[in-house]
Each structure stands twice: as structure tokens, then as C-alpha cells.
């Protein structure tokens, strides 16, 4: 009796979860099978969402909150705490620009300004056409080639702002 609220068997007639969230229920069952329950399920569920979409769509976060009976603010707080979770869809290609010391000395800031102008987005965002996601990272470990950016798994070193448009053009939409 004392555990009524925690046992997850609430009977409230919420509208049957849309088909789209069935995968979450499956993830709950899997994690529960491993003995996880209640709020311990939060991270496994977020991983399931990200596994499916590559990021955390807002409606799915709301569904996670609903399923676990935790406030959305908590779900969002956890999602923004861990590096591994993304709240926006990733573009087809990921650009990582280095903010490390060597690159900094060799003009990484100019490169970033140029990227910003070229892509029309700020670091951490994705272009509206879904082509690029742009992130800032600490040293990429290629200091010899500074300044460096990485696109998907290719390095582009000793880069000048002028070279950028030609390089970006070669990554398909």
C-alpha cells in the first residue's frame, strides 16, 4: 500500500500514448527487466530517444516526463547536463572547430567568424537546411596543422577563411 505512487501502475486515463511513443514503453520494459525503476529510467530513456532520432525531440522529452511521472524541467535539466544528449537535430555533416591554444594563436577566431558568416548559424546550431551542425571543441589533437577544423572525420588544417567556401561546397546537402 505504502508504495502505491511508486509502483508505476497508475490508472489515470490519459489519452493512450500515441503510436509514436510505443518505443519508449519498450525501453521502459527493457530497463525494468534489468531492475531499474522510477527515476533511474530517465537516462536509459533519453538514450533510447537519442538512439532513435539522433537528438531529443521536444515531444519525446515530454512523453518521457509523462511516462516516468517526473517534471519536464527535470528531464530537460538532465538532458542539458550530459554532453552526450542533443536537443536539436544533427545536420548531415558535423563541423567541429578547434578552440585550443595552438589554433587560437594561428587565428582560429577568424575561422570561426568566417564559418558563422558562411553558415548563418551560431556554434551549437544546425543550418536550417539540415546540412551542417557546427560545434566548438577543445584541442582536436592536430596542433601541428593549426588552425584546424574537422568535418565528419576529415581534418582540414592550415586553413584560411578564404578556403572555407570551396571546402564546404564539397559536402553534399
Amino acid at each position: 500500500m505504502a508504495n502505491g505512487a511508486q509502483d508505476g501502475s497508475r490508472l489515470v486515463q490519459v489519452q493512450a500514448p500515441a503510436q509514436r511513443f510505443a518505443y519508449l514503453q519498450a525501453a521502459v520494459d527493457d530497463a525494468a527487466a534489468e531492475g531499474q525503476r522510477g527515476e533511474e529510467l530517465l537516462i536509459p530513456l533519453l538514450q533510447a530517444v537519442q538512439g532513435k532520432f539522433g537528438y531529443l525531440p521536444a515531444e519525446d522529452l515530454a512523453a518521457v516526463a509523462e511516462i516516468l511521472h517526473v517534471p519536464l524541467s527535470r528531464v530537460y535539466g538532465v538532458a542539458t547536463f550530459y554532453n552526450q544528449f542533443r536537443l536539436t537535430p544533427v545536420g548531415k555533416h558535423i563541423i567541429r572547430s578547434c578552440t585550443g591554444t595552438a589554433c587560437h594563436v594561428k587565428g582560429a577566431q577568424m575561422l570561426r567568424d568566417a564559418l558563422q558568416a558562411e553558415l548563418g548559424i551560431a556554434p551549437g546550431q544546425t543550418t536550417p537546411d539540415g546540412r551542417f551542425t557546427w560545434e566548438l571543441v577543445a584541442c582536436l589533437g592536430a596542433c601541428g596543422m593549426a588552425p584546424v577544423i574537422m568535418i565528419d572525420d576529415e581534418f582540414h588544417g592550415r586553413l584560411t577563411p578564404q578556403q572555407l567556401p570551396r571546402i564546404l561546397r564539397t559536402y553534399s546537402a
Binding site: 517526473v70 527535470r74 530537460y76 535539466g77
Partner: peptide, 10 residues
């Protein structure tokens, strides 16, 4: 029991 707010980011 609303939970309108929480720690976010890091």
C-alpha cells in the same frame, strides 16, 4: 509538486 524549474545545463 509542480516541478516547474530545475537545474539546467552544467
Amino acid at each position: 509538486a509542480i516541478g516547474a524549474i530545475d537545474y539546467t545545463r552544467r
